[in-house]
Design a protein around this nucleic acid. Structure first.
Lengths: 205, 205
DNA sequence: GCGTTGCGAAACTTTAGCGTATCGAAAACG
DNA sequence: CGTTTTCGATACGCTAAAGTTTCGCAACGC
């Protein structure tokens, strides 16, 4: 390839750093984490080998493993679903559909893996992840449910924290238990079915 | 202590193996896994240190780490909740209460941790765990829901797999997100609140 | 008491990863 | 061109842990 240039802001002499190599390193990091490696198991050598890159190229950019992981996770911008739907019902389906896709995607899964598994060993890193990724989603979901309560679409005495756990937890658990692996064989309308049944309730009437 | 005997089936010469040491090893293994260690991170040396035992004593009994973990998990007999309640509603609360307690207990948590995290690396081990621990619970829950459908307590068109994921997934997710650590600060009646809201549904009527 | 086997502690060897340094080649600049 | 910097590759010394062996002592049957 002939494209190896990067920025043209300043003009440092010499050969510019390869953006290709940088992307390969980030990708390899996310791939390995997505395959279930914890932060402790993740090794710079494995990343370098996976990326087809010398270790020097990694250490020239990041001084240690944690910095690299922070940057890699930052590249994983998971777009919040747009919630401009007509009804809360439809917005919930759209939201859960994003949850389903993330839960099936190895790349996205590693965020939760780290947040759940490495909380005690890397509290600062986990806190950064929580603030950047998890909290906005929780806030969006909470706002959506409260919108439903205000509009009368949802019951007035709704227990919002429990309802959030119900909606998200159902999808997460369902994917884990039924849709075995990345190549999911889930029903295509699973988000709709989950939302319908949760909103309606399980009891006969 | 004076009790160091084990079995009296055969009669191998020499000093008998200490049952106390064996139990200490198993306990240390379960404790460390309960603290969040994955199979890969778990080290024989850490187990020996925690158990107050020489590494020799471990290697004399188990030839490798996986064998030890299999034996340790086998010792974790998780009693299924008795479901002799009057209503499906009450049985569901009893069931979810057990789920809550297990989710908060470090010992029980490690079963799920391994089942979820090490599925790709140790498929045989995970499959054994699934058959021995997870599958009976799934079957019990499925039977309970179907009983509810048959009795008319639950809607006739109930999507049982989704309903199972809803009930269990809600509790698991709620504990993970709210009841931060082992020393939970969850509301005492959380199982009841979850079941009530799920059975009734979220919509206003 | 004697032989046998288990015990915990410690020393040993091997393996794996870290972080650094060095190498020739390559890619930019003047 | 020559200079500068990065590239991938490889080698190095270092540390931590794995797994094995050794050792002196303890607990059993005979």
């Amino acid at each position: 390839m002939t494209t190896t240039d990067e920025t043209q802001a300043a003009r440092p002499a010499g050969r510019p750093r390869s953006a290709r190599a940088e992307k390969a390193i980030i990708d390899a990091t996310l791939d390995l984490m997505g395959e279930g490696m914890s932060l402790a198991e993740l090794s710079i050598e494995a990343i370098a080998a996976r990326a087809g890159v010398g270790k020097t190229t990694i250490y020239r950019r990041w001084s240690n493993k944690e910095d690299l992981v922070v940057d890699a996770l930052a590249k994983l911008k998971s777009p919040l679903p747009e919630m401009g739907g007509r009804s809360v019902h439809e917005d919930l389906i759209a939201y859960l559909e994003v949850v389903r896709r993330d839960a099936c995607d190895a790349r996205s899964r590693c965020v939760l893996n780290i947040a759940m598994n490495d909380a005690e060993r890397h509290p600062r890193l986990v806190e950064r992840i929580r603030q950047a990724t998890i909290e906005p989603r929780r806030a969006a979901m909470s706002a959506l449910l409260q919108r439903g309560v205000a509009s009368g679409e949802l019951r007035a005495d709704l227990d919002v924290p429990v309802a959030m756990a119900t909606l998200v937890g159902t999808m997460m658990w369902y994917v884990r238990s039924e849709g075995l692996d990345g190549a999911g064989e889930l029903p295509h309308n699973i988000a709709e079915r989950i939302v319908d049944q949760i909103l309606t309730g399980l009891v006969s009437r």
